[in-house]
Amino acid sequence: MRQIAVMVGQRLALGLLTLLAISILIFGATELLPGDFAEAVLGQSATPETVAAIRRQLGLDQPFWVRYWAWLSGALQGDFGASLANPDRRVADMIGVRFGNTLFLAGYAAAMAVPLALGLGILAALWRNSVFDRGVNAGALTAISFPEFFVAYVLILWLGQSGWFPTMARVPAGVEMSERLWRTFLPALTLTLVVTAHMMRMTRAAIINLLASPYIEMARLKGVSPLGVITRHALPNAIAPIANVVAINMAYLITGVVVVEVVFVYPGLGQLIVDSVSRRDIAVVQAVALIFAAAYVLLNLAADVVSTLSNPRLLHPR
């Protein structure tokens, strides 16, 4: 038990260190510009007064580390400063509700995608080289190759036009859960279709990889049914690679929401970052990028911990 706590603690510390490096990178990227950001944003319309105003707001008259420290300590307390495009609005207020919406959409898609992918992967491994296996594999390879907006518009055309599901995923505050699930079904389904393929292929590969080991042959010889061999004997040892690929795809979901939110006009963080990029509102982009990156790092950390726990040998590195 102590070893596990130490291991989790070490991974957490490493994750925090990574996050710190990422925050320096996200905040410091503006330093890459020749000249400074105020001139670059204003471009042709730069007058000495407007440049000075933006400089003051971004604190560009102060050294980098002072600005970075002010930004980081504010961010840790949930305060990301004021929006650059609209100085009356706080970035934290713009993010607030949208963050919850994005988490809801990603969670909804994950709840559909993970069981589907694991089920299909196990079945494909069970009936490998059958028509089912080949069909699912070719389908998965095709689905991986589709851009998200293609999948989204095909679904709109097919399910949305027939009136079964709304094509605009606007969610008014205070609607019931069932209503909310129904309204956001199409964006969630789009995300599900996009991430399922990769998870399913990896699940199948991880299980098939194990089927050649002697202990599986032993289980077969003693008369365990094919399904039993896979679920009782192969699956527990395949948890590590499967947990990894699930985490990678959850992390992918977080960035995948950007395009899907724009297609379905869903009020989430993805739409906010896209709007802010075209307005060059660096304060909002930095805040959202930091949130996405933190989620990404946390998910990878979780996968790391799960795969170490699933394999006791990894707890005792030589």
Binding site: I22, L33, T255, V258, V277, R280, A289
Partner: peptide, 20 residues
Amino acid sequence: VLMAIPSLIFALLLLTIFGT
């Protein structure tokens, strides 16, 4: 460190800074 940031998000950040 660069790979710990999701690629689309990183690209969006850089496009904000350098313009499109």
